[in-house]
């Protein structure tokens, strides 16, 4: 079947299997491999992307469902060679280690801050509950999101 959608600002039209997941579409058809697959149960959030500005787990959306919509991945968050303020905060606060959860975590954080520009620490923790990280203990991820919201001192 044919899907027509916008990915990182680029209009696309592709012929796909109806059961193709959005994450596989992005990775295999579009060649955008920042979003990762970390589980089979919509638990880990490594595949999080923005669909019409809101975070979704792209393992739980069919490519077909994204027809007519606007998808943004970590690759498209800022101009090439630049960092989005949330990406910059993740670097400044050492909010990533192995990097596997990072693109998804960043997209979830961007979405969270759009909904709530000045969250409390507790709200950040709740907002990111669906994104798992095994390296950072979340400490610096929380710091990064608070810093990106202008609420925490940048320690670096």
């Amino acid at each position: 079947m044919q899907v027509e959608l916008t990915v990182n600002g680029e209009q696309r039209s592709d012929d796909v299997e109806p059961r193709l997941l959005l994450v596989h579409y992005l990775r295999e058809v579009c060649g955008l491999r920042a979003a990762n697959i970390g589980c089979d149960t919509t638990s880990c959030g490594a595949c999080t992307v923005l669909l019409n500005g809101e975070s979704v787990k792209s393992c739980t959306v069919l490519a077909a469902q994204a027809t007519g919509q606007d998808v943004v991945t970590a690759e498209g968050l800022a101009a090439a060679g630049e960092l989005h303020p949330v990406q910059a905060a993740f670097r400044a606060e050492h909010g990533l280690q192995c990097g596997f959860c990072t693109p998804g975590m960043v997209m979830a954080a961007v979405s969270l801050l759009r909904e709530n520009p000045s969250p409390t620490e507790e709200q950040v923790r709740e907002g990111l509950e669906g994104n798992l990280c095994r390296c950072t203990g979340y400490h610096n991820i929380i710091r990064a999101v608070l810093a990106a919201s202008g609420q925490a001192e940048v320690t670096a």
Partner: peptide, 9 residues
């Protein structure tokens, strides 16, 4: 980090 944060590892 810049690579991990943008194009991903």
């Amino acid at each position: 980090d810049p690579r991990f944060l943008t194009t991903g590892g």
